[in-house]
C-alpha cells in the first residue's frame, strides 16, 4: 500500500503505453505513420488523418513553458501542505503540450518560454509522473547561457 494521497491517473488501454514509458524512464507519445503527427492525449486513431497506423515515438523530453498557475488553495487530497504550488503547461519540442509541475525552481522564478526538460517522479510502485525542471544553466535573469 502506498501513502501517496494525490490523485492517480485513470489508465486505459489507450493511455497504458504512455504510463508504461514513464515507468521505464522515457517519454513516448503516439505518432502517426501515415502523416507523422505526434499527438497527445493518446487516441484510437490519428486525429489528423484518421490513420490507425500508430507507433509510440520516444520524445526528447525537452520543451518550453507555455503558461503556469500557482495554486494558493488546496482543492485536492494530498495538497494541504503543498500550497502554494505550481501547475505548468509545457509545450514539448515535438509539439504536444503536457500539464505538469516544475520542480527545482521557486515559483517566482518561472517564466513563459523558459526551456525545461523532463524528470521522472515515481510516486507509487505502479505510477511515474512526468515532471519538468529548468534546463541546466538557465536563470530567470540571464536565460540559458
Amino acid at each position: 500500500m502506498s501513502d501517496y494521497l494525490k490523485p492517480l491517473p485513470p489508465i486505459t488501454n489507450l493511455s497504458k503505453p504512455y504510463w508504461d514509458s514513464l515507468q521505464e524512464g522515457a517519454l513516448r507519445m503516439p505518432q502517426c505513420q501515415a502523416c507523422s503527427l505526434i499527438f497527445y492525449p493518446p487516441a484510437p486513431l490519428c486525429p489528423g488523418c484518421w490513420s490507425r497506423d500508430l507507433t509510440w515515438a520516444a520524445l526528447s523530453g525537452r520543451g518550453t513553458v507555455n503558461s503556469w498557475v500557482v495554486f494558493h488553495q488546496a482543492y485536492l487530497k494530498g495538497y494541504d501542505n503543498e500550497v502554494p504550488f505550481n501547475v505548468t503547461e509545457v509545450t514539448l519540442d515535438e509539439g504536444p503540450r503536457l500539464m505538469t509541475n516544475l520542480v527545482g525552481i521557486d515559483n517566482d522564478d518561472i517564466r513563459v518560454d523558459m526551456p525545461v526538460q523532463v524528470v521522472f517522479d515515481a510516486v507509487t510502485d505502479e505510477v511515474t509522473l512526468a515532471k519538468f525542471a529548468p534546463l541546466p544553466g538557465w536563470s530567470p535573469e540571464g536565460g540559458t547561457p
Binding site: K6, V69, L76, F85, V87
Partner: peptide, 12 residues
C-alpha cells in the same frame, strides 16, 4: 483539468 498534477477547477 489534470488532477494528477494538481490541476483542478475551471478557474485554474
Amino acid at each position: 483539468e489534470d488532477p494528477v498534477y494538481g490541476m483542478t477547477s475551471p478557474g485554474a
